[in-house]
């Protein structure tokens, strides 16, 4: 009986582990507000943020903003995946293509997507397209490079075995090269989804009148710091959720084999 109780106790404390740092941070935050050292207009209390969050939720504004942001991220992210993964596969398998394109990609990659904002506005005008373009840019280069290095690091034996058994080019790509590179492709997808979510907020501060980025900018303009922080909290929560989703993907049998290989 006592042992069983201890076991439940241990499970409960394990469950709480991820939350302690968050709880302490909120308590410290509340304490700082109580001391009055920082005025409420520059740091709203946790209670005020919760109140703001409730207002934004019940008015439906939060939901609309989240949907608008996710819509743009989805478009940019999928467009990047659909172009970057095939390009990475080709670059990984054909050395001439790799040697030709790699310098260009390495040159474009370190340029922050935000530096493209002026051009994006001129090319795509106002609205969703420039924001989607920025998301696309932020995902495209890393995805290409992850896929390419995934293909380049395939053990030569795997390719030789495929040639030995007489697999056709199509079979070789679909059954060997793509699955062999998949673990790194998925790592790339996970990293870039984080980047995309990072970039969307900035992108929405310039070109559009909806989304979480716009929500924060608009709240700042009307000096509603409680809404600003509420927006930040939602961005953090959704980012966390997206990452958990991608972690799930990394545990699929088609992906996890690389970590289990001896």
């Amino acid at each position: 009986m006592k042992r069983q109780f201890q076991k439940i106790n241990r499970k409960a404390s394990m469950f709480m582990e991820p939350f302690w740092a968050i709880i302490i941070m909120v308590l410290l935050w509340q304490a700082v507000v109580w001391t009055g050292a920082i005025p409420a207009y520059s740091l709203p209390s946790p209670a005020a943020v919760a109140q703001g969050l409730w207002e934004l939720t019940s008015s439906g504004r939060l939901f609309k903003s989240v949907v608008a942001s996710l819509f743009r991220v989805t478009w940019g992210y999928y467009l990047a995946a659909l172009t970057a993964i095939p390009l990475g596969l080709v670059m990984g398998t054909i050395p001439v293509v790799r040697r030709t394109l790699n310098p260009l990609i390495q040159f474009l990659r370190p340029i922050s997507p935000l530096a493209w904002i002026p051009l994006a506005l001129i090319w795509f005008g106002i609205g969703d397209p420039p924001a989607i373009f920025l998301i696309f840019l932020s995902c495209f280069f890393p995805m290409t490079l992850f896929t390419m290095s995934g293909v380049a690091s395939i053990r030569p034996t795997f390719i030789r075995v495929a040639e030995n058994f007489g697999l056709s080019r199509r079979e070789k790509y679909l059954r060997i090269i793509l699955p062999a590179a998949l673990p790194e492709i998925v790592t790339g997808l996970r990293v870039t989804l984080g980047t995309a979510w990072l970039v969307i907020v900035a992108a929405e501060m310039i070109a559009v009148k909806s989304g979480l980025g716009f929500l924060i900018l608009d709240a700042r303009n009307s000096l509603r710091m409680d809404y600003v922080v509420a927006g930040m909290v939602v961005i953090g929560l959704i980012g966390l959720l997206l990452d958990l989703l991608m972690q799930r993907m990394e545990r699929l049998p088609a992906v996890i084999w690389k970590r289990l290989e001896r």
Partner: peptide, 18 residues
Amino acid sequence: PSPEHIFVFQEDGLYPWL
């Protein structure tokens, strides 16, 4: 290489994702 001449390599040649 030919499917009539099959090679068992020194290192593991099974596909780990299959």
